[in-house]
Nucleic acid binder design. Structure first.
Lengths: 103, 103
DNA sequence: CGCGCATATGCTGCGAGAGGCATACTTCGG
DNA sequence: CCGAAGTATGCCTCTCGCAGCATATGCGCG
């Protein structure tokens, strides 16, 4: 990940933006009307998201239409992978426990 | 999630601690020797992790042995879920694209 | 019960990041 | 080419979280 993805996602407003872009692409103003925030702040958050690879943008007339990008999410998923074993192990332990109860 | 899990994970040192606890449980001093950080800082990070549910601790004599907990990771996994559709959609699009190339 | 090890907490200073405002830049329509 | 819409950037302020140090607390041992 280019910059720290977790730090990027630590901002609630940015998660909100991603949640919105998950539905459909949107211009800065469209996002501003949906999310309670002024335009410069929106542009800044979008910049952070863009530099971290979470979104890309294309120019349509005067507008910049932003779009969500899957890559950083995949990387997050990959980061999570070794921890996934944790809860399967826990489930295994639970299963063994239950098996012993039965016997 | 009790407090903002992303904010908790935004700290590299804390991710390092989790990575270490993933292998095996450990006392504060054991973690201090492995990770380059002083003891008070370690205790503070562990407190943050504990309050966010990422770790739990049990008391063994004078030591507190910390252990990783799966729940917040599961919640993170759940958060990631709707975004997982993103890259499967992208893969589908790629697949269709390749199919068209063939025809 | 007092000492020492292991850990937690309080305090201070500092830097990073977010909001708010003004303003610069870009691109289209006339 | 000029004005306006849409967006980005710069500056300031304020807050928050971290590091570092000193110190308080918990706990076992002799």
């Amino acid at each position: 990940m280019r910059t720290d993805a977790f730090a990027v996602l630590a901002e609630p407003t940015r998660r909100r933006i991603l949640e919105e872009l998950r539905r459909s692409d949107g211009s800065v103003n469209e996002l501003v009307t949906v999310i309670a925030i002024n335009q410069p702040a929106m542009s800044k958050h979008l910049k952070v998201l863009r530099e971290a690879g979470f979104v890309s943008c294309r120019t349509v007339a005067q507008r910049r239409v932003y779009r969500i990008e899957p890559l950083p999410f995949r990387e997050l998923d990959a980061w999570l992978e070794p921890y996934r074993r944790l809860w399967s192990i826990h489930l295994d332990a639970l299963q063994r426990h239950l098996d012993n109860e039965e016997g």
